[in-house]
Design a binder for these strands. Structure first.
Lengths: 192, 192
DNA sequence: AGGCTAACAGACAGGTCTGTCTATCGCGGT
DNA sequence: ACCGCGATAGACAGACCTGTCTGTTAGCCT
């Protein structure tokens, strides 16, 4: 039980790595389980052992996407300095980075939500992600001294979502730059 | 040839009406041709006569969505008065209207693009739509006297896309209100 | 009345999807 | 040496998908 977890984790990680790459590129519904199996070099039974249903794999994909995107957002904010005000603008560096990345294909959550039944667990997870991110931005706006932190957070996340979502059509980095300039203006206006 | 076009148009329209409703709600890939046939009360041969491939039906769906959304955008702008400056903000009424509409499920183009192969005609059509809309906004910004019409147009369409795209997660009308306030600020800043 | 055309009804082929199942292999611990 | 366990390989069922094909029905024009 306590020995050689690496082998166990290795198979699971290989599956998840492959699923992340394929799901993000083509959407979960556009990738069959057989393709994930073939490209990760894993047996079908192994995949279904770790992820009894395809939805479980999709949820794990969303969790990994959440870690990646939310992590990048917080890292960009941190790199912008100690002032919450600067962090609110600095987090848009994460958008710039995403736009430049090869294979950039928009927002994993919006893309997945678009093809998931409204009542299901997958759709709920996408909503949860956006809620968590907005709550974090709201807290940042509050600490920055915004009169209406919720409004400012909504405005900024709107810009983030717009920039991310457009990426599925056109990954032009000019989008990220426009978003950043808008953000600067909004933050300056809200904080005086 | 010139008689009774209504019967001909009737079947085609019924197909397109049904496809529009189903495709928008579940995504084109989430709806089988058989479902469209069953719900539109049409024979399979009839559907394939009017739309030889499913992609043709998807393209017709996108065209109808373009007419609806772009039309609403122009109508809202027109209703805001004769000043291009007011129109740039007024067009956000279309977003408010969309958020309030029952069955609102985000942006038909982003949702469809998310599940369409990158090189294909369907994806190209979604990009084309966004390009046309942005060109229209750019012209409006130019007439309003913006120093950098392209930048302002990009910032405003970014807000529109963000508001629309978020709709697939959460159709909160507060989003539209936040977008409108952001737009007002951006327009005021750009036009002095 | 007869012919043309659009639409209806539905079987069918060929492929893909998810999820289950059987049988085998390899390796580490006792 | 042997057992247990995770992984491999791949057949299989049942559902669903697109697209084609055959045959029938209803209305309109000459």
């Amino acid at each position: 039980m306590s020995t050689n977890r690496t082998a166990v984790g290795s198979a699971r990680d290989r599956i998840l790595d492959t699923a992340f790459r394929l799901f993000y590129a083509h959407g979960p519904r556009g990738v069959g389980v057989d393709t994930v199996i073939a490209e990760s070099g894993v047996a079908k039974a192994t995949l279904y052992k770790h992820f009894p249903r395809k939805d479980d794999l999709v949820l794990a994909y969303l969790d990994r996407a959440d870690q990646a995107w939310f992590g990048a957002l917080r890292a960009s904010a941190r790199d912008a300095g100690d002032e919450p005000r600067d962090q609110l603008v600095g987090m848009f560096d994460a958008l710039t980075g995403a736009c430049r990345r090869d294979g950039y294909h928009g927002c994993a959550f919006i893309n997945t939500a678009a093809e998931s039944p409204a009542g299901g667990p997958v759709h709920a997870r996408t909503v949860e992600h956006k809620t968590v991110v907005r709550a974090w931005v709201t807290e940042l706006a509050r600490r920055a001294g915004a009169a209406d932190p919720e409004l400012l957070a909504r405005q900024l996340t709107l810009l983030l979502d717009g920039g991310l979502a457009s990426g599925v059509l056109d990954g032009d980095p000019a989008i990220a730059e426009a978003a950043r300039q808008s953000a600067r203006l909004l933050v300056d206006a809200a904080l005086g």
